[in-house]
Design a binder for these strands. Structure first.
Length: 637
DNA sequence: AAAAAAG
């Protein structure tokens, strides 16, 4: 006999109940070892344990007669709502969405920490609308393109989609008034069960775009029985992969807000993390009797994991490790999301990703639902990515506020040997202009880790408080640097490409490409760290002969973005002909276009857009071309 | 060639 969910729930409930007064834990008889790390599925949390009837596996569609299945089907969506009216109202802000059922993890030492509470902290002197920090007025002229079969129509409000009470409440807590363009399109697509390849900036609510459908889907999905491979193996229902630890942290933090009090558990796993950052807050709160420093980071991550996970956010390396140790099984994965998907599939990451997605026990495309997000989507990468997708919809969303050029891009010719003094000039000017107030942050990108350390040191020596983030620093140092920068304590951050993608750092006024990247897409991601949340941004690049290969794509990009292209750069661009590798694949208004549309026929420029399914709601695709600006700028993130 | 990601 296999262990059922009901059994697991009963065990946990008994454990949570302390002396186990009301719960009969006997009679669940099976070979399951006495488990301290039992998993409680979302739909069983916060509710009284059921004694019988294993829930069907997710692939099955039948619910077992009298047991968990039937009872839950109603309670998941029906009952909570009824309870809400009184529950939320009477309990004020504290409101337990699920009424007063309080078994599960919202109790005792496992009390779910309010993720909305920890934003105050010393780290956040800027208390404007960080959450909703999007210029909602700029929405209407955002260009959107979709292609694929039977694209579900976009929605205009969250109310149009039934995400469930708990999720709606969290949306309110996040101060999201209405969905962003990417959300308007991506959420209906995902809710319809379709695979998705989406080009969109991070600041646009991309994380929510894939989190909402996942959480909603988990809550309303068939209860699953996760096979008992041993109590130490966990079976997440959703997997979110991202290329850097900091980005995984960021996604986790956001996802926790969205999942708050839904019963859906979000866990993050990444390498090299100090205990108090990777370990869940619940665990910290419990102050369990463990000498933290005697326990490896990994074991703490595992301990956290063992408490059960529905949505696992991870970096590839650590996940592979967990998979090889059989601490995680992907057998039950229903949702797979790759953030910065083009990075995840580039040469460095592809083998690991293929291993995770294709060579472990993850359900194949068509069985699971797959969502890929990035701002840049080179054609070659799209081709690779299509292996992971089934009948997918391609979605390209322009940049919020794109009609105004939020980012001013400058390129200056600076010899290698002059870079430091030139940077110093910029910083001095900034200071003089008062641009570098407490809130004006400068992010300086360099090519190498050693270069980052050297430059940081030199800046500090010269009276500019700087810190650095790169892969040779300990995770603790990395996170400290990021916090110090965000808080304005150290208003200059010298970074390698580890900080190029996805990180949402408010108040970055200036991005300096001290060393230009070799790939134009990297440039796009880098400068996308500024000009966010409707604020203006400045991006300055130091260009010299070493960057000749980038000249053409850079000039094109700047021209598309209505930026002033220096004559000398144009000459460079003209000289470097066959700009094969570095040419932007998509060009134009989006971070990419559907490569499926670029067959031997139909390669005409604007025809392409009209060939795809019109997105609806935005009028004809030709209409916004001018207003939007030839926006390479759409490709942020 | 470099960066990221496991320890």
């Amino acid at each position: 006999m296999r262990a059922s969910w009901a059994d697991l729930a009963a065990n946990t409930a008994a454990e949570n109940a302390g002396a186990g007064t009301s719960v009969n834990n006997a009679g669940t008889g099976n070979s399951l070892p006495p488990s301290r790390s039992t998993y409680v599925p979302p739909h069983l949390r916060n509710r009284r344990p059921l004694a019988e009837s294993p829930a069907p596996p997710y692939s099955g569609s039948t619910t077992s007669g009298s047991g968990a299945g039937t009872a839950n089907a109603g309670s998941r969506w029906g009952a909570p709502r009824a309870e809400n009216r009184s529950g939320v109202g009477s309990s004020g802000g504290r409101g337990n969405v699920w009424g007063n059922r309080s078994a599960g993890w919202d109790r005792g030492r496992d009390r779910e920490v309010n993720p909305f509470g920890d934003q105050d902290d010393t780290e956040q002197p800027f208390n404007e609308q960080e959450n909703s920090g999007i210029n909602f007025d700029a929405y209407e002229d955002i260009p959107v393109e979709t292609s694929g079969d039977n694209v579900p129509p976009p929605v205009n409000t969250f109310a149009e989609i039934d995400l469930g009470e708990a999720l709606n409440l969290n949306i309110m807590r996040c101060k999201y008034v209405k969905p962003t363009p990417v959300q308007r399109h991506a959420i209906p697509i995902s809710l319809a069960g379709r695979d998705l390849m989406a080009c969109a900036q991070t600041g646009s609510g991309k994380t929510a775009a894939f989190c909402f459908p996942i959480i909603s889907g988990i809550l309303r999905g068939q209860p699953v029985q996760r096979p008992p491979r041993g109590v130490r193996t966990v079976y997440p229902l959703a997997l979110v992969l991202s290329p850097t630890r900091e980005l995984s942290m960021q996604i986790h933090e956001e996802a926790r807000k969205f999942a708050y009090q839904t019963g859906v558990k979000v866990v993050v796993a990444y390498g090299g993390a100090p205990i108090n950052h990777q370990v869940s807050l619940q665990l910290l709160e419990s102050r369990c009797c463990i000498a933290y420093n005697e326990i490896s980071y990994l074991s703490m991550a595992l301990r956290d994991l063992e408490k059960g996970v529905d949505i696992l956010v991870a970096t590839p390396g650590r996940l592979v490790d967990l998979l090889e140790r059989a601490r995680v099984s992907l057998q039950m994965i229903r949702y797979l999301a790759l953030d910065e998907a083009d990075r995840m599939l580039d040469m460095g990451f592809e083998p690991q990703i293929r291993k995770i997605v294709e060579q472990m026990d993850m359900p194949p495309p068509g069985v699971r639902q797959t969502m890929l997000f990035s701002a840049t989507f080179p054609k070659e990468i799209q081709r690779l990515a299509s292996d992971f997708l089934s009948r997918y919809i391609f979605l390209a969303v322009g940049r919020v506020g794109s009609s105004t050029d939020l980012i001013v891009q400058r390129v200056e010719y600076v010899q290698e040997s002059d870079k430091r003094s030139h940077l110093m000039d910029l910083l001095h000017a900034q200071r003089a202009n008062g641009v570098q107030g407490k809130q004006a942050l400068t992010l300086v990108f360099v090519e190498t880790k050693k270069g980052a350390d050297a430059l940081e040191h030199w800046l500090c020596m010269n009276g500019f408080p700087a810190t650095t983030i790169h892969g040779d620093r300990t995770q603790q140092e990395r996170e400290m640097a990021l916090r110090s920068f965000k808080s304005g304590n150290t208003p200059i951050l010298v970074a390698t490409d580890v900080a190029a993608r996805g990180l949402d750092i408010p108040h970055v006024a200036h991005v300096v490409n001290f060393d230009l990247p070799n790939d134009i897409d990297d440039y796009v991601h880098r400068i996308g760290r500024t000009g966010r949340a409707g604020k203006k941004g400045l991006a300055t690049a130091f260009f010299n002969d070493n960057n000749a290969s980038l000249a053409r794509s850079l000039a094109e990009l700047m021209q598309e973005a209505n930026q002033e292209v220096p004559a000398w750069l144009s000459r460079y661009a003209a000289r470097s002909s066959f700009g094969g590798r570095n040419r932007r694949s998509g060009g134009g208004r989006f971070g990419g276009r559907d490569f499926r549309r670029e067959g031997s026929f139909n390669r005409g420029g604007s025809d392409y857009y009209n060939a795809g399914n019109s997105s609806g709601g935005y009028g004809a695709s030709g209409g916004y071309g001018g207003a939007y600006g030839p926006g390479a700028s759409s490709a942020w993130d």
